[in-house]
């Protein structure tokens, strides 16, 4: 599993670059590097469904980000400015929250099973009954469209709402003085 650790390191370096670089276009491309390494890791942990969806969604995300940046500006003018008091306050708050979060995560990581040995109490039932009950060979499709179809209905509703929000916010009418 050495390649998994390599991609994890690459992902973290790309994430640091994406948050710290001055040019916003480079930041978006670094975000794309994070997304594609996530997609490759999905293949390495035997999740091809997730890898396909992650790759196509990542391409669309980069297209939308670049569309916004190309219509506005691509220089991050806030880097290198003098720190204001609110900014220092935010950094102190972040440091405090990080320590709290690490304590909680360390305690909860003791509870969840080790990497590579899941419990699979419900999943064994789904794997055993997936083909006889639904007839589909892809267990993930069986889970999202038959056993847990209401979950997918909720997802469709959220996507519909966000599309309505985007289209309504970008209209010209409704902004008349």
């Amino acid at each position: 599993m050495i390649e998994l650790y390599l991609f994890l390191a690459f992902m973290i370096i790309a994430a640091i670059v994406a948050t710290e670089i001055k040019d916003l276009l480079s930041a978006v491309i670094s975000l794309g590097a994070v997304g594609f390494s996530v997609a490759i890791m999905f293949i390495l942990i035997q999740a091809p469904d997730l890898a396909i969806v992650q790759i196509v969604i990542e391409v669309l995300t980069i297209v939308i980000f670049i569309a916004v940046i190309s219509r506005t500006t691509h220089i991050d003018e806030t880097i290198g400015k003098k720190l204001s008091s609110t900014h220092i306050c935010a950094i102190v708050l972040y440091a405090f929250f990080t320590i709290l979060f690490l304590i909680v995560m360390f305690r909860s990581l003791q509870e969840i099973p080790d990497f590579g040995n899941p419990i699979m109490k419900i999943a064994s039932e789904y794997i055993k009954l997936g083909l006889p009950k639904t007839g589909g060979a892809n267990i993930v499709a069986d889970v999202i469209l038959d056993f847990r179809a209401l979950d997918t209905l909720g997802e469709a509703t959220v996507l519909f709402t966000s599309v309505i929000g985007v289209v309504a916010l970008m209209r010209k009418s409704g902004r008349k003085k």
Partner: peptide
Amino acid sequence: FVDPIPQALVLTAIVIALGTTALMLT
């Protein structure tokens, strides 16, 4: 097999992530 339930939940979450990101960018 690996556990299919986290994969099924993440599959919908990835698509929702794009929708919320697009709304934020708008």
